[in-house]
C-alpha cells in the first residue's frame, strides 16, 4: 500500500472588495508554508470572468511560485483545455516544467461556464471534441518534432515547440471528471483520473468502479497515483472547525450552485444547493485531527485515493485560520494517517 500524500489547493477566490495585492502575497505565503510543511504539491485552478469572485490566473501564479516553493510539485489543476490552443498551452506549461526543474502536474477538464466558452470563441457543444484533439496535439508537441495535425480550430504545420518539458515523456496528465462518461474518457486519454471535489464519497466509490472497468476495457493498469480533491479543515474540535470555516464554505458552494457546477454532476448527487449539514455529510473532510484522520483513512479504503488535494480556504476565510489548519493537518494528521495505514 502506497503512502498517502497531501497537496494544497489554492483556490484563491476572493470577494470583489478585497485588495488583490495583499491576497496574492497571502497566497504566496500559503504556498511557501505548504512547501515547508511537507505538502506534496500546490494546486491552482483556473476560471475566467469569475465575477463576483476575484482570482489570480493559474499560469502566472504557478510560475511565480516556482521560486518561493522549491520542493512542491506545481499542479495546474485544472486547465480548461477545450478553451485553449494546444500550441499555446504546450509551450506555456513546458516553460513552467523547465523553470521548476520538472515539477509540473498538468490537470485538465472540460469546463461548463457559458461565459468562458463564448469568450474563447467556442461553445459547450464543441467542448468534448476540442478537449480530445487538444490533448492529442499537446502530447504530440511534447514528444515529437515537426508535428503536422489539422484540428477543428487549429492547424499544426510542421510545428516543433520552442521548449519541451523536463519530465519525459510528459508531465503527468490528470483528468478531472464528474460524470460517468467523462470518467471513462479519463481512463482512455489521461494518466489518471483526478477525482472530483464536489461529489459525496459514496458517489465517488461507485464511480471508481466505472473507472476501473474502463481501464480494463482499454487495457490500462490502475495508475499508481490516484488523486482526489476535497474541502478540508482541521481544528481542535469539529465544532470549532465548523464555526471557523462553515460560513465561507457555504458561500463558496452557493456560488458553484449559481454557476451551474452541479449540472455537470451525476444524477442522485447533483444538488449543491443543499443545506450545509446535508452538503457536508460524506463530502467534506472536517473536524479534529483524529476525526479528519479517520475520514481520510475511510476515503482511502473506499476509493483507493492516495493523493488528497486539500482546499482549505473559501471566500472570507481568515488567512490565519487557514494557515493554522494547514499546520495542524501537517503536524497531526499526516503522521496519524501514515500510522493508520
Amino acid at each position: 500500500m502506497t503512502a498517502i500524500q497531501f497537496g494544497l489547493m489554492l483556490r484563491g477566490q476572493f470577494p470583489q472588495e478585497d485588495d488583490m495585492t495583499q491576497r496574492f502575497n497571502e497566497l504566496m505565503l500559503q504556498g511557501k508554508l505548504a512547501d515547508s510543511l511537507g505538502f506534496s504539491c500546490v494546486t491552482k485552478g483556473s476560471h475566467y470572468a469569475g465575477y463576483p469572485l476575484q482570482d489570480v490566473q493559474q499560469i502566472p501564479f504557478l510560475a511565480a511560485l516556482a521560486r518561493e516553493a522549491p520542493n512542491v510539485r506545481l499542479n495546474a489543476g485544472i486547465v480548461l483545455l477545450s478553451l485553449h490552443k494546444p500550441l499555446d498551452i504546450a509551450e506555456q506549461l513546458a516553460s513552467i516544467d523547465v523553470i521548476s526543474g520538472g515539477r509540473l502536474i498538468f490537470g485538465i477538464a472540460l469546463g461548463y461556464r457559458e461565459v468562458e466558452f463564448k469568450a474563447f470563441g467556442t461553445t459547450q457543444k464543441e467542448r468534448v471534441p476540442r478537449f480530445e484533439e487538444n490533448l492529442i496535439a499537446i502530447r504530440r508537441l511534447w514528444t515529437e518534432n515537426n508535428v503536422n495535425m489539422k484540428g477543428s480550430h487549429f492547424e499544426l504545420e510542421d510545428a516543433s515547440v520552442s521548449l519541451k518539458p523536463v519530465q519525459k515523456p510528459n508531465p503527468p496528465i490528470w483528468v478531472g471528471a464528474n460524470a460517468d462518461p467523462a470518467i471513462r474518457r479519463a481512463a482512455r486519454i489521461g494518466d489518471c483520473w483526478y477525482m472530483n471535489p464536489h461529489n459525496r464519497i459514496d458517489t465517488i466509490a461507485r464511480q471508481v468502479d466505472v473507472y476501473k472497468a474502463a481501464l480494463d476495457e482499454y487495457n490500462k493498469p490502475m495508475p499508481e497515483e490516484f488523486p482526489i480533491r476535497r474541502e478540508v479543515f482541521v481544528a481542535k474540535t469539529k465544532e470549532e472547525a465548523l464555526r471557523i470555516c462553515g460560513e465561507s464554505l457555504a458561500i463558496k458552494y452557493k456560488v458553484y450552485h449559481e454557476w451551474g457546477q452541479d449540472k455537470a454532476m451525476p444524477e442522485g448527487d447533483d444538488d449543491l444547493g443543499l443545506e450545509f449539514d446535508e452538503l457536508a455529510r460524506d463530502r467534506f473532510l472536517i473536524g479534529s485531527p483524529d476525526e479528519v484522520t479517520e475520514q481520510v483513512v475511510d476515503l482511502h479504503k473506499r476509493t483507493g485515493a492516495n493523493h488528497i488535494i486539500a482546499s482549505m480556504q473559501w471566500p472570507g476565510t481568515p488567512l490565519t485560520a487557514t494557515t493554522d489548519s494547514m499546520q495542524m493537518l501537517a503536524e497531526e494528521v499526516f503522521p496519524k494517517v501514515a500510522q493508520a495505514l
Binding site: A63, A64, E68, E91, Q92, S95, S160, S162
Partner: peptide, 20 residues
C-alpha cells in the same frame, strides 16, 4: 511559438518567474 530551430521560454510564465 514553435520557434524551431531555436528553443526559448514562453513569455508570460517566464516574466512571472523572473520578476522575483
Amino acid at each position: 511559438f514553435a520557434g524551431y530551430p531555436l528553443q526559448e521560454f514562453q513569455q508570460l510564465p517566464f516574466l512571472s518567474r523572473i520578476m522575483t
